[in-house]
Design a protein around this nucleic acid. Structure first.
Lengths: 315, 315
DNA sequence: TGGCCCGATAAGGCATCGATTATGTACCGT
DNA sequence: ACGGTACATAATCGATGCCTTATCGGGCCA
């Protein structure tokens, strides 16, 4: 399976014709036909079949097409990326938990980029807790922001505490939440689906069954639903401060909350980590960074906004 | 640049040693060395250089590594995807706007999957309005949910209206918003960065400068900030109904809002679209789908939750 | 300085890619 | 039925991929 073969397949699928694809690629028709044939034999699937008004994709072909598109595009991107790297700013990739991504990653990155001038350019992506040590150890991310890391790869990673805060449960002021927390309806952001997250640990300790949990696309939406009386949500205390202050939400005590937690920054051990990662660690210890982490909520100008991207392990 | 070469590079970067990579791959050391050499010549960059305690990445190498990882992983995924497709459920990929992704995509997909039994499996991804016709036309998505599509590729696409609603501006009940809307502080979700979105059109019509706009990672967060008095937010009226009812937010009239809009479902023209896309169009016209689109807010059980994924054009 | 480890390079062999021209074969319309 | 269009296959050929063994070269340490 080569990139040329995939390109041929993509064009056939898009143009609905082998001949048209050959013309587009500037080669003879059998060249394309043969590339297609190679893919078909390898995958043991016709991928595209003749039909009225062009070639249509088989189920297998329609699965392959988006993957092939990515591979071909990445091939081009690889070239551009290496070329752009000569004389470009050092790049720093952060892997962050869901909650951090939603509230502090953007302003933090913004502040760090501004502070480091043009010399370092940081960006962030969301990852599951379990993936973080792998991402960092494999250099697919330079710094991970989340819970403390420990495990088999711990010897080559270093985890430094950067911020202490508390997890609480919140609900509507008009709600009545007494007795067994496991029986309440719980509302949560995506972090409830991450087995390694602090949020998930709270739910586990309370023995809340999955059937009692509703997952929302983000933390804020879960809080909004909680404010509407739909249930109880797990929250980082200082991040819901404004909702608490406006009495849209109140803290609901449970057996395990308030619970003290600590965000950590995980990198490769000192001698193996890139220079930019060290700069960021320094920055995270400054009062400016503390301020950003403590007071959330500020948006970002449109030009600087980066939508949250979910990072996965590509091993 | 072949996948074998990239694999060799990846292992060298990760293991910090050519010999170790060769051992891991089960080949001789020069084989790896040669693969590396080919990549180096092609990109005119050393990619990895000898240094104390292993090989370290050059700037170019560190850009290449994550891309290479993706390509290699996708290679494996391609195989698995095609294999899994034999006898698997038909798969339907939705490209949706930011706002739809946040509120209705998950419950809509959930309802459709349930209704279609095991025969169709739908999933959704976020895309910019401008990308949608391209994604659909190139079969990288089967259905796009967003504004009406028109343009050069319009002849092979069909856009059907599925839901009518209104855009309004909302702010804190304690806020004072009079006079020129362009002067107010505006709060928005990521859709404010999408030039084709209805939200962006409202901001443009009001001639709000970028400096007056703060972008939040999601719509709900922008509303929460607006409720806190930080400014005015654009909202789909029925999606903020609960906040309006609880008087956390009130509608702020402007020159262009309330503004009637209509969500459309865009697919390939009838004869070229896959069967599943037709089923979804039918479903979208049912009272059940209307109900889901009208009443947002419901979360999803953890097992069914899918984090929002941003789809990009891989051409 | 002399070994030693590790990576780079050279040379050779086999397989595959990617292209060509020529030919076979299925579908469609008059 | 027949011709035309379009895809599939065959035969061929040069270039490249990818692996091997053998050799060279450059730091590191006793």
């Amino acid at each position: 399976m080569t990139l040329t073969q995939l390109s041929a397949f993509i064009l056939v699928a898009r143009l609905g014709s082998v001949t048209a694809a050959a013309k587009a690629l500037g080669v003879s028709e059998p060249a394309v036909s043969q590339a297609l044939s190679a893919l078909r034999h390898q995958h043991d699937d016709k991928l595209v079949i003749r039909s009225a008004g062009g070639m249509t994709l088989t189920p297998g072909g329609s699965r392959l097409l988006p993957i092939a598109s990515q591979m071909v595009a990445l091939g081009a991107e690889a070239d551009a990326a290496v070329r752009a790297a000569q004389g470009a700013a050092e790049q720093l990739r952060l892997a962050v938990t869901d909650v951090i991504a939603e509230f502090v990653a953007n302003p933090l990155v913004e502040a760090f980029n501004k502070r480091s001038g043009e010399s370092i350019e940081a960006s962030s992506g969301v990852a599951a807790t379990k993936e973080m040590p792998v991402l960092v150890a494999n250099r697919l991310a330079d710094v991970a922001l989340g819970p403390q890391m420990s495990g088999d790869t711990a010897h080559e990673l270093s985890s430094d505490p950067i911020f202490r805060c508390r997890l609480v449960a919140v609900g509507s002021p008009r709600g009545r939440y007494r007795g067994r927390a496991a029986g309440w309806p719980w509302l949560a952001g995506p972090s409830a689906t991450d087995p390694g997250s602090e949020t998930r640990k709270v739910l586990d300790k309370l023995r809340v069954p999955d059937s009692a949990i509703q997952v929302f696309p983000n933390q804020t939406a879960a809080w909004a639903a909680a404010a509407g009386g739909a249930g109880v949500a797990v929250a980082v205390e200082h991040l819901v401060a404004s909702q608490l202050q406006r009495h849209e939400l109140v803290v609901v005590p449970t057996q395990v909350t308030p619970m003290a937690i600590c965000w950590h920054a995980t990198t490769l051990s000192r001698d193996r980590r890139p220079a930019g990662a060290g700069s960021l660690l320094h920055f995270l210890a400054t009062p400016q960074a503390m301020r950003v982490m403590r007071s959330p909520g500020a948006g970002v100008p449109p030009a600087r906004f980066r939508p949250p991207v979910y990072v996965t392990i590509w091993s």
